[in-house]
Computed example of a mutant assay.
Amino acid sequence: MTETADRVANQALRNDLEDVYGRYEELRSGVDELQRSIATMRVSAASPDGAVHATVNADGDLIGLRLDQHACREWNVDTLARVIVETVQHASAGKHRQVEHLVTTHRPPDEAAAA
């Protein structure tokens, strides 16, 4: 009788281990996907008038800047500098929101429900 009970207990442990390993594989796959998404992330923002466009990567580094001819001709350098900085900051804030969204959507179902 104890031999049968041991077999049942062992099978239950094997089943539990398979479940845990399956969840681990799902989490690992999700983390890999999250890392790929963040690594390729690009976030752009434009100034309110559209004269300045800035693009940042996941690290917040400025990787693209486009200036309208109007901005270069009509604005003084201080105004242009201020608008560029504000637009880059706006893109960086958008990057933070996107990273937060990605992390939230990649949480395991149990953890996402608790948040």
Rank of each mutant, 00 (worst) to 15 (best):
Ala81Val: 06
Gln69Ile: 01
Ala39Ser: 11
Arg7Asp: 11
Ser29Ala: 08
Val83Glu: 13
Gly60Ile: 13
Arg23Asp: 04
Val77Lys: 09
Leu27Pro: 00
Gly64Thr: 07
Glu3Ser: 15
Ala45His: 05
Lys95Met: 15
Asp110Met: 08
Val31Met: 12
His101Trp: 00
Arg28His: 02
Ala81Ser: 14
Ala51Gln: 10
Val31Glu: 11
Asp16Tyr: 10
Ala113Asn: 00
Thr4Lys: 03
Leu27Met: 14
Gly30Cys: 05
Ala39Phe: 01
Ala71Ile: 08
Leu65Phe: 04
Leu27Ile: 10
Ser29Trp: 03
Asp68Gly: 05
Glu3Asn: 14
Gly22Tyr: 11
Gly30Tyr: 02
Gln69Trp: 08
Arg73Tyr: 12
Arg7Pro: 01
Ala112Leu: 01
Val56Leu: 04
Leu65Pro: 06
Leu17Trp: 05
Arg42His: 04
His96Lys: 02
Ser29Val: 02
Glu26Cys: 05
Leu80Pro: 07
His106Ser: 05
Val43Ile: 13
Glu18His: 08
Gln11Tyr: 09
Glu26Leu: 12
Ser47Val: 02
Arg36Thr: 08
Met1Ala: 10
His70Phe: 12
Arg28Ile: 02
Glu33Asn: 08
Thr4Met: 02
Leu102Ile: 02
Glu100His: 05
Tyr24Met: 13
Leu80Val: 13
Val77His: 07
Ser44Trp: 04
Asp16His: 10
Arg42Ser: 00
Thr87Tyr: 12
Arg66Trp: 15
Ile63Gly: 12
Thr87Ala: 09
Pro48Ile: 08
His106Val: 03
Pro48Trp: 06
Val103Gly: 03
Gly94Leu: 02
Asn57Ala: 11
Glu18Leu: 09
Ile38Pro: 01
Gly22Cys: 10
Val8Met: 07
Arg7His: 12
Arg82Phe: 15
Gln98Tyr: 02
Asp78Trp: 06
Glu111Tyr: 15
Leu27Asn: 05
Glu33Ser: 12
Arg82Pro: 04
Ile63Gln: 06
Gly50Leu: 11
Asp49Arg: 01
Lys95Asn: 03
Glu74Cys: 04
Leu65His: 04
Asp59Phe: 09
Gly22Leu: 11
Cys72Trp: 13
Ser92Lys: 00
Gln35Tyr: 10
Thr104Ser: 01
Thr40Val: 08
Asp78Gln: 10
Trp75Gln: 04
Arg107Met: 03
Arg97Ile: 02
Ala112Trp: 07
Arg36Lys: 00
Leu27Ser: 11
Asn57Asp: 15
Leu34Cys: 06
Asp61Ser: 06
Arg66Glu: 15
Ser92Ala: 01
Asp78Phe: 05
Leu34His: 03
Leu102His: 03
Glu74Ala: 15
Glu33Arg: 13
Thr2Ala: 11
Arg36Ile: 01
Cys72Glu: 15
Ser29Glu: 09
Ser37Ile: 04
Leu34Met: 07
Ala5Ser: 15
Ala9Asp: 10
Glu86Leu: 15
Asp49Pro: 00
Val56Lys: 01
Thr105Asp: 02
Gln89Arg: 11
Ala113Gln: 12
Cys72Asn: 10
Ala71Val: 05
Gly22Thr: 14
Ala45Tyr: 00
His53Glu: 12
Val77Phe: 13
Ala81Cys: 02
Val85Glu: 07
Val85Ala: 13
Val56Pro: 00
Tyr24Gln: 08
Asp110Asn: 10
Thr4Ser: 01
Asp78Leu: 15
